Simulated assay, not measured.
Amino acid sequence: MAVEIVLSGPNDEVFPWLESRLDSAPGVRRLRVGERSVLFCERRQQLFELNATADCIWRSLVAGRSPSMVVHDVLALGASPAEALSFVIASARSWLVAGLLAPAEVAARCRKTPDAEIHLRLSELACTLALHGPAHHPLQRELELVFTQFLAAHVDRSASISLVCEAANVFLFFAGRPLGLFRTDQVIPEVKAIITEAISRSLSDGWFLLHAALLRRGHRGLLISGAPGAGKTTLALALAARGLGYGSDDIVTVSPAGHLRGIPFSPAVKSGGWELAAAHAPQVLGLPIHRRGDGQQVRYVPIDCFAEGDVETLGWALILDRRPDAKPRIEPVEPLAMIAELISGAYCPSHVLRADTLDAFAAGFAGVDCRRLIYADVTQAVALIEGMIGE
């Protein structure tokens, strides 16, 4: 039976793997560089430096010794019993969180038939979320609500994300490889990040991604760009509430033919925008709070007015410029400046934007109304946009 140790301090947490074998993840290697030791994680493309104590702990763990056994190895370095226990637990937990280690029994559960599966289809990507945990775990319902627009009865040859639930913790695996240990409020943002990366990797040659929002009025698209914090999500949510078809608040794919398609994740409203968003989506204040990897707290707002398929005709393109106390106004922008703004944050799977794709994308801007929206108040901004596109 695992011995549970409660850490003292401001972040009290239970460590239930004291008697477990913790295996290193594939692609993680300890390196010696001169007199110093580091861990290299191939998946993260990162180096993690080890001091003498951490180096001892790592070598003992990957040799198959349980954390409780490794405590004795640290005692031999001159640490007190309390210090040795604290060092081992802190080190092991940090490596579990980073996905450098995984408990052997957790990895074994991941390989078994899951207790529940959620099948998703996102454009060309098929994805299965395999849940290993108590039946009817609350996380299953939350995942289904946040990703409801992508639910499918079944998908073949899908990317597989496994979630192994352990009390208030969840281990995530992608294609059988550990990604880390997460609190339940961190899981959905992390799953979204994994799916987003999988989408980017699944793009065929010539495709690329824009960091933008996409909506539709009739057969014409409205593309909204702007720096982080400019208000793309809040405006997309407000415009969807006013009847525009919702394509995306964050990610737009561009085909080699220059056609646009949003990836309609539920809008992720950051904590600073909850009150603003509530004016257009009152339910936001009652939704669960999730914590992203960057520390931002977000709430995911369900949307029911999706814009299906490609946007072949772009009608309007906006650059957001949010300024405190600004007088709301819309100014014309040269199409070339708009295209340069959009592709400055674009992602290509080959890291090379093809000239023929850019040619097709630029050709789609013939007749597009390109503007810069300067604003402070969301309601006034919505009124200006509706005036621009025609109610």
Rank of each mutant, 00 (worst) to 15 (best):
I5N: 06
I5R: 07
L7E: 15
P10T: 13
D12H: 15
V14T: 13
E19G: 15
R21S: 08
L22H: 10
R29W: 11
V38A: 04
R44K: 11
R44Y: 02
A52I: 15
T53I: 13
R65D: 15
P67F: 10
M69K: 10
D73H: 10
L77A: 11
P81V: 09
E83G: 01
S91Y: 12
A92D: 08
L101V: 04
A102N: 08
A104H: 11
A107I: 06
K112R: 02
T113F: 00
E117S: 14
H119T: 08
L125I: 07
L131A: 02
H137D: 15
E142W: 06
V146N: 04
F150R: 00
A153I: 09
V155C: 11
R157M: 12
A159Q: 10
S162F: 11
S162N: 08
E166C: 11
A167D: 15
A168D: 14
V170A: 12
L172Y: 00
F173Y: 11
P178W: 10
R183L: 07
V187A: 05
V187H: 09
I188P: 03
E190R: 15
E190M: 12
T196W: 02
E197H: 10
F208Y: 00
L209H: 05
A212R: 01
L214F: 06
L214C: 11
L215S: 02
R216S: 11
G218P: 07
G218M: 05
H219M: 04
L223G: 05
L223I: 05
G226K: 05
T233V: 12
L237Y: 00
L237M: 04
A240H: 00
S248T: 01
V252M: 03
S255F: 11
H259R: 10
L260F: 14
P264L: 01
F265E: 03
S266C: 11
V269Q: 02
G272N: 15
G273K: 04
H280G: 03
H290V: 03
H290I: 05
H290R: 11
R292A: 09
G293L: 01
G293Q: 09
G293S: 13
Q297R: 13
R299M: 09
Y300Q: 03
P302H: 13
C305I: 03
E308F: 12
V311E: 07
T313Q: 09
W316G: 06
L320A: 01
R323S: 13
R329F: 13
E331K: 09
V333G: 02
P335N: 13
L336C: 05
A337Y: 12
E341L: 13
G345H: 11
R354N: 06
A355P: 00
R372A: 04
Y375I: 09
A376K: 04
Q380K: 04
A383K: 01
E386C: 00
E386Q: 14
G387K: 03
